[in-house]
């Protein structure tokens, strides 16, 4: 039985599509305390402690973690909020 391949069309330009998903990425930095990063994820995003700790450890161990996804404007607001907290954060088009 043959399995259809669903390869991505690399020439497809999705920039103008309204529902193109965007992501908020928090980057590791040597300054912020792990307890503070976990606190920010709980107090701002409303995560429960296990999820906040998982994301915090991802940031710490992998250097970055996607902490939210959605529309571009929403991700811009998240990034601004992370900068308010002093976390290193950017947004990007989700190309995963």
């Amino acid at each position: 039985m043959s399995i259809p391949t669903l390869e991505r069309d690399t020439t497809l330009d999705t920039a103008g599509l309204p529902d193109t998903p965007w992501v908020t990425i928090v980057w590791n930095d040597p300054v912020n305390l792990q307890s503070y990063v976990s606190y920010v994820f709980r107090s701002y995003f409303g995560h429960l402690r296990p999820e906040a700790e998982r994301l915090m450890l991802l940031v710490h161990n992998e250097g970055r973690a996607v902490v939210a996804s959605g529309g571009r404007e929403e991700m811009e607001r998240h990034v601004e909020a992370m900068h308010d907290f002093g976390l290193s954060a950017t947004l990007a088009k989700d190309d995963a």
Binding site: E76, H83, G86, S88, A89
Partner: peptide, 17 residues
């Protein structure tokens, strides 16, 4: 560091933001 770019590798978008 206090006022970082909002985008990596997209200067135009960072500037606008």
């Amino acid at each position: 560091r206090l006022l970082p770019d909002a985008y990596r590798n997209d200067d135009a978008a960072s500037t606008e933001h």
